[in-house]
Design a protein around this nucleic acid. Structure first.
Lengths: 342, 342
DNA sequence: AATTAGCACTCTATGGTTGAGAGTGCTAAA
DNA sequence: TTTAGCACTCTCAACCATAGAGTGCTAATT
């Protein structure tokens, strides 16, 4: 299997034209749109070869070609980088404006997902920052009512985390204050992972050490498990993806929404991606989800103070603009990292 | 215009059959499914009259009848109450189980919306509890990092409210503590509305009164506006509504999603409803949104300690099961009120 | 006066047919 | 190795034709 220069050009052309027109690409189209100095017959020969190699396929005998997953893979790995579509100044400005308005972390995540949706015309997805490797900086309890206490836990990187806890008896402000002092004293500077494990394992140790607070540790034992919290996921606008021609048959759309609303599968896929590399593109069947075989997911890491914390993604049909999506994710990832770190 | 008993029965039959089958209802159908002791011709005569009065319409000359908005309105106002579909024991148990798992308020709202979606097979919507009429019970500041402070404000009903504030200079823990003490001292027991207004109006008063804290009031002035927070809205599963036959043409679906994602319109509609009455049903064109003329919204209030706080809704096609939806909303509203109040 | 049987009429939905057009793949020539 | 030329294939849209579902009207019946 030899892919010469011309074949690369042709494959590239097919991908491009198919991405923009959503219709099978003919030899005629390739020549005319790219002004190639070769005949359509020559192009057809190459197309035949590219199909034989598995990069292209035809919906039916007398139709033009469309890329296979393997074709997109080759495009993404070998051809795309040369022609990354950079964002326009307006787009960049637009992104920055939106971030200026967002105040709290939830809003920042929401804005991020919406921006990705809008700029890629597909579904933007954001995984909220993970803080399990952070260290404990502060903890505070507030009584909401006689059955509920709100714990706010702050980490060294300025992220925070909240949990409502149910209790069966009144606990005085003083006792809550004392508890938080103890926790700070014992755990300040330790990673949440450690705090969590040690607290759960050694609860009786603390129970004996600080006897005055006996009733409270029992409550905390049941309530204070930081890790059980599942990853928060944010979705941007779903309306753009609805308009993609691959979803004009409702059935496909049903599959897509069932998949999205299941959430866990998607979270798994995204998490696996950021573990691998800074940016990861998963195409169609590579997702390993039969019902999603006509979709791709692009995932980009984002950082907080230089450390990997979460991911932002684009979910769209395999016929998506990979180049544009990568640019969007790159730029937004930088903005997001900057905002979170500041 | 006289609607006799038989005509009511027939109108009721049309609504029922159309709701379950999503297909125009013929005279034959009505007689056979309802075992009426009259001929189809008689039914046809009544159908003609009901159409003349505007309760029914035909998609085309030789088709059965479907209800108009006016027809649904009559059904909902006059016929429905006699035959409310109560939830089964399993459904009730299912709801309770789900609420047991939910811990914090966000989870409770999310679970609520999902339950509504599942049980009605349409889109569940929840407006988070409004706390502007609550009084201030506690306030606490935590430093996240040198640029960000997290304020947690607790109200007398055990709800809380958070805001991240940006600052340009370090503020010591002591100063933050002092500030919160001052706010508590000045505003404890006052409604958030009042706190908000007075704080913003009299900021200079406090500035002079507590001079040691000069730099801080400036920051608070810009950041601490409780009311600007817009109403939080939660959506359940969108996948059920996708499967409704009225949305098998993508275009309708596009309208629906554009409307949903706009959010503001829907929030306005829901808020107007709860202001009116405990339960409110808005049918098709009554929504006043051209693109949503084939949809209805049912809204139910929910309480916290006996006071109106928010709303739960069902959004679906006008051909939705109003009776079932009302039951679902009723039951869930009670559960939700109970959980929030406990 | 109300109901019903009977029947003509209307409209949709389905399936089959046709022809145009798009695009390929092959062959033979350049 | 490239290309012109052409037969071949398949889709798509348009156009029937027909079956059948359901109505509305008229005249008969209760």
């Amino acid at each position: 299997m030899i892919i010469n220069n011309r074949m690369s050009t042709i494959l590239n052309a097919v991908v491009h034209l198919y991405i923009t027109n959503a219709e099978p690409v003919s030899s005629e189209m390739i020549v005319s749109y790219y002004g190639l100095a070769i005949s359509t017959a020559t192009v057809r020969n190459d197309l035949q070869l590219l199909e034989k190699y598995g990069f292209l396929k035809k919906p039916h005998t007398s139709a033009g070609r469309i890329p296979t997953d393997k074709g997109y893979r080759f495009y993404v790995d070998q051809l795309m980088e040369k022609e990354i579509v950079h964002l326009t100044e307006e787009e960049k400005q637009d992104i920055k404006e939106h971030y200026k308005i967002a105040r709290d972390y939830n809003e920042i995540m929401k804005v991020t997902s919406v921006l990705i949706s809008r700029l890629t015309q597909n579904l933007g997805v954001v995984l909220a920052p993970n803080m399990i490797k952070d260290t404990l900086k502060d903890i505070h309890f507030v009584t909401l009512n006689n059955q509920r206490i709100l714990a706010t836990l702050v980490t060294n990187s300025g992220l925070f985390f909240q949990k409502m806890m149910r209790v069966n008896c009144d606990i005085s402000e003083e006792n809550l204050e004392a508890i938080s002092q103890i926790i700070k004293k014992e755990f300040y500077g330790k990673s949440l992972e450690v705090v969590n494990d040690e607290m759960l394992n050694q609860i009786y140790h603390y129970y004996f050490k600080y006897q005055t607070l006996d009733s409270i540790w029992n409550l905390i034992e049941n309530c204070f498990d930081f890790t059980e919290e599942e990853t928060k996921i944010f979705f941007g606008n779903r309306s753009y993806i609805l308009k993609q021609p691959e979803f004009k048959e409702i059935e496909r759309l049903n599959y897509l929404f069932d998949f999205i609303e299941e959430e866990d599968n998607l979270i798994k896929i995204i998490k696996k991606s950021i573990f691998n590399k800074q940016i990861d593109i998963i195409i169609g069947s590579e997702l390993g989800q039969e019902i999603m075989e006509n979709c791709s997911v692009i995932t980009r890491q984002y950082l907080l103070k230089g450390k990997l914390r979460g991911a932002i993604s684009v979910l769209g049909p395999t016929r998506m603009n990979y180049s544009k999506s990568v640019s969007v994710l790159d730029f937004i990832s930088h903005q997001l990292s900057e905002i979170l770190s500041e």
